[in-house]
Each structure stands twice: as C-alpha cells, then as structure tokens.
Computed example of a mutant assay.
Amino acid sequence: MIRELDMADSDAAIKVLRLERRAYAVEAQIIGSMALPPLRDTVDTLQQCGERFFGYFRDGRLVGAIAYERDGQALHLCRLIVAPDCFRQGIASALLDFVIKQETPISEIIATTGSRNVPAVRFYERHGFYATERIQTPEEIELTTFVKEI
C-alpha cells in the first residue's frame, strides 16, 4: 500500500531516515563513496526539505519511499528509496508509477543518481528516462541526470 507521509510527524521522519540510511549505504558501496549527501540527513533536514513524500508499506512496515518537488509541469525526483531486503520486487516501479498518476498533468520527470550506480541507471532507462548530463559533486561523486518526457 502506498500512502503520503507527513514529515512533520517525527515518527514518520525517523522511519524514512532509517530506510534512507540503509538504502543509501548500499549505493555508497556500489559507487565507492560514503560521502553521499543523503547519508548526512537528519530528522530535521528531512522535515525541512520541502519535498512531498510517499511511502510503500508491506505488512505495516515502510519498505520504500519516494520524494519529489514539483516545478510547474516538471517533477523533480529527490529520493527513490527501497529497503535493501526488498530490492528487485517492483517497489521502486510502483512508487514511480504512483507519483506519475498522482501528479498529472506533468510534462517531464527529472531524476539524478550516481553514474556508477548501475542498478539505478538501468532502472531509469527501463522506465523511459534518458541521460541528459553528468556532473561532479564537491564530494567527488559523478552524478547523471535523467529525464522522462510524459
């Protein structure tokens, strides 16, 4: 079941933070850098980020989350998180599909991931995204921006 998360509720923010740390620790291993900015998030930074959050629950447990910001007709995916023990079970796809249906009308979705995060790159490509640019962060992490036109 997917439902909106009220990040003003500290319990919800704590659950997202725990999920985020587990998921981004896997990405950090894949890309070879523990300097990923989401690994420095706190309950406060999650509550103050201004993103809209939805969670995927299985048996009452938060196993996935998506967060985004809307800018006119563009949707900027800020986070797409899945519990490591639930990888490759369709959760990320379900969250992405849910948001696309939730936020109509939109003309494009923009997402960024570590260029060396092959599973994430393949995920976006499978869902019709194409790479538009690569950037280097101050933490020396190469990121690829993907766009999907709707």
Rank of each mutant, 00 (worst) to 15 (best):
I2W: 03
A8K: 14
S10Y: 12
A12Q: 09
A13P: 00
I14F: 13
V16I: 05
L17W: 07
L19G: 00
L19Q: 02
R21M: 07
R22D: 13
A25Y: 06
A25P: 02
V26H: 03
I30Q: 06
I30N: 04
S33F: 05
M34G: 14
D44T: 12
T45G: 03
T45Q: 05
L46N: 00
Q48D: 12
G50F: 12
F53Y: 11
F53P: 00
F54P: 00
Y56W: 09
G60I: 06
R61M: 13
L62T: 04
G64N: 04
A65N: 04
I66V: 11
A67K: 01
Y68R: 02
E69K: 13
R70D: 06
Q73I: 15
A74P: 02
L75T: 03
C78L: 14
I81M: 05
V82R: 03
A83R: 07
D85E: 15
D85R: 08
D85C: 06
F87N: 10
R88W: 15
G90R: 07
A92F: 03
D97Y: 14
D97M: 15
I100T: 15
I100Q: 13
I100N: 12
E103M: 07
T104I: 13
I106K: 15
I109P: 01
I109Y: 00
I110G: 04
I110Q: 06
T113K: 08
V121K: 02
R122Y: 13
F123R: 00
R126F: 09
G128W: 04
F129S: 01
A131S: 14
E133I: 10
R134D: 09
R134C: 09
P138R: 14
E142C: 06
T144E: 00
V147D: 04
V147H: 07
K148H: 10
E149P: 12
I150N: 09
I150E: 11
